[in-house]
């Protein structure tokens, strides 16, 4: 049975509530991504005021952040696949995919925390580097914690093909974490 047909089984009020939540979360994501854009502007401003960026003598390793970015993207893919499985009433598929997704997300969080601590350079470069990684990390940790709670509930069978909002909402939030990081990754390591 397709998801669209399943959602038709919801009452009018439930459909309205689902529509409101989806719209509200989308607007929140559109809004909150602007704080990340703000920090990107801060990065460019500091860059513009510095003769070289990164400063001479400072080398930023790219291999580990690139691998971690791939891990985060992979995490989002697994989480999304798990959510799709839940909506098809496949609880086993949900838990398996989310387990992989959470593991990859956890790996990203741990390694990037180490990157934060071992950040290279000094002065404004270090300030901005840590600011961006740290700001993103706070979001990754908070939303990651929420995903773990949802996963635990999902394993206990709390969610189903017609009762899935915490799963869908958590998935969207994790996508937000991924998109925000990809923006930061491009700014911090590519350009």
């Amino acid at each position: 049975m397709t998801q669209h047909v399943l959602e038709q089984k919801l009452t009018r009020q439930e459909q309205q509530a689902l529509r409101n939540r989806r719209t509200g979360l989308a607007i929140f994501q559109l809004s909150w991504i602007m704080t990340f854009v703000c920090l990107i502007i801060v990065n460019f401003t500091m860059r513009g005021g510095s003769p070289t960026w990164p400063p001479e003598g400072v080398t930023v390793g790219k291999i580990i952040p690139t691998l971690m970015t791939l891990a985060l993207i992979g995490s989002s893919v697994f989480i999304r696949r798990g959510t799709k499985a839940l909506k098809a009433d496949n609880i086993a598929g949900f838990t398996t995919n989310w387990r992989y997704g959470l593991a990859l997300g956890g790996l990203f969080a741990v390694v990037m925390a180490i990157e934060f601590i071992r950040a290279p350079g000094s002065g404004q470069f270090l300030n901005v580097y840590r600011l961006m990684i740290g700001f993103h990390h706070v979001h990754a940790m908070a939303i990651g914690y929420y995903l773990i709670r949802v996963y635990q509930n999902g394993r206990r069978g709390v969610y189903s093909a017609t009762d899935f909002w915490p799963v869908e909402g958590g998935t969207s939030l994790w996508d937000f974490v991924t998109v925000a990081w990809v923006l930061f990754y491009v700014v911090l390591y590519i350009i």
Binding site: S31, W32, T35, C38, L39, F135
Partner: peptide, 17 residues
Amino acid sequence: VVMATPFLAGALTLLIL
């Protein structure tokens, strides 16, 4: 509000830091 206020949040975070 939703498009502009996050910039204030970003700026205030820097100020507080």
